[in-house]
């Protein structure tokens, strides 16, 4: 059991967990404040929308694709919810439901284009990224506050942790999303088909996997999770802005890769993505605690981590006999 845990597939995940523990441990040694659960609670809350988005991205990358539209989706969903509640009298939850449905449909549509016309996912989702960002501006040019008793209650909700920390509603939604993602990835046939398609598309088709259907569903799932990220982001900040979440698609990809998912597809874990997102948050927090460092150091450290993980992946795929695709 122990041996199989450290197999080729779990090695990147183990490395990610190790990095996460090392960073957190280092913080606890260096700073007294880091030892409190307040930091943990804030980490989970502040990175909730990123991690939720990255879960959808994990499915896409596992299937051998990429989705650049998720950052714009977050902004689009935020603006949509704000306008629906302010101008059309929607309850925020109803608005969120509409946003989730639209997000899933848009994602599925991109998946269908990719699948039906055999186009690079990179270019289709890049088009989706511009389209959604533009749509956000079309709906509203300015920042709109979302003022509704429900949103206030959402922001105020907290479950106290031992110590000074607490779990926010955002964090709880995120943890539920992670659990849902794990179930879909590892315990459903759809999940296994995603891994099969990402491992070797041609062989998967020969072995009877519904490749086209799986591709469409994967992008729909990414649309859903990024829309959910957008909902949480809107509720958490109680406002919306068309220029929100610029570049979050790249943060999400970084979380997925640092989380041990192979960029070529076929290998990876949702749990890894969760930890990958946390690592980014921890680095940010450490730099904030230090106080003397510029906050852009976060990007530098994440860049370095990415380099390390990509090279590790390359070495790992080389040891695989018969893996035809380049990473």
């Amino acid at each position: 059991m122990f041996k199989s845990f450290f197999s080729e597939r779990t090695l990147p995940l183990a490395a990610t967990i190790l990095v996460c523990l090392a960073l957190y441990g280092w913080g606890m040694i260096q700073y007294r404040g880091f030892r409190d659960t307040l930091v943990l609670g804030n980490l989970l809350t502040d990175n909730a929308f990123l991690i939720i988005t990255a879960i959808g991205m994990t499915f896409v990358i596992l299937a051998g694709g990429i989705d650049l539209s998720v950052g714009s989706m977050i902004a689009f969903v935020g603006v949509l919810i704000a306008v629906l509640t302010r101008d059309f009298g929607f309850h925020p939850l109803a608005a969120a439901f509409v946003a989730l449905v639209i997000g899933s449909l848009l994602g599925g549509a991109m998946g269908w284009l990719i699948q039906a016309f055999d186009i690079q996912p990179f270019i289709i989702t890049l088009a989706g990224m511009f389209f959604l960002r533009g749509m956000a501006f079309l709906i509203n040019l300015d920042s709109v506050p979302i003022s509704h008793p429900f949103v206030d209650a959402f922001a105020a909700f907290r479950i106290p942790l031992p110590g000074k920390g607490w779990l926010s509603a955002s964090a709880l939604v995120m943890l539920a999303a992670v659990a849902g993602g794990i179930v879909i990835a590892h315990f459903t046939r759809f999940g296994r088909n995603v891994y099969a398609v990402g491992g070797d598309r041609a062989s998967a088709a020969l072995m009877g996997v519904p490749v086209g259907r799986t591709t469409v569903r994967v992008y729909a799932l990414s649309g859903f999770f990024s829309a959910l990220g957008g909902v949480i982001y809107a509720f958490y900040t109680a406002s919306s802005y068309p220029l929100a979440a610029v570049g979050v698609e790249l943060d999400a990809i970084a979380a997925v890769v640092i989380g041990g998912t192979l960029l070529a597809g076929g290998i990876g874990f949702i749990a890894g993505t969760f930890i990958g997102g946390l690592i980014q948050g921890i680095i940010q927090t450490l730099i904030a605690f230090d106080g003397s460092l510029n906050s852009w150091w976060t990007k530098i450290v994440i860049g370095g981590l990415l380099f390390t993980f990509i090279v590790m992946q390359r070495l790992l795929t080389r040891s695989f006999v018969g893996l035809r695709k380049a990473a």
């Binding site: 891994y195 990402g198 491992g199 070797d200 076929g266 006999v321 018969g322």
Partner: peptide
């Protein structure tokens, strides 16, 4: 024509 990243068991039983 199998999928190298999946486990042996999954490859045998995929469909």
């Amino acid at each position: 024509n199998l999928i190298p990243t999946l486990s042996v068991a999954e490859n045998l039983m995929l469909e």
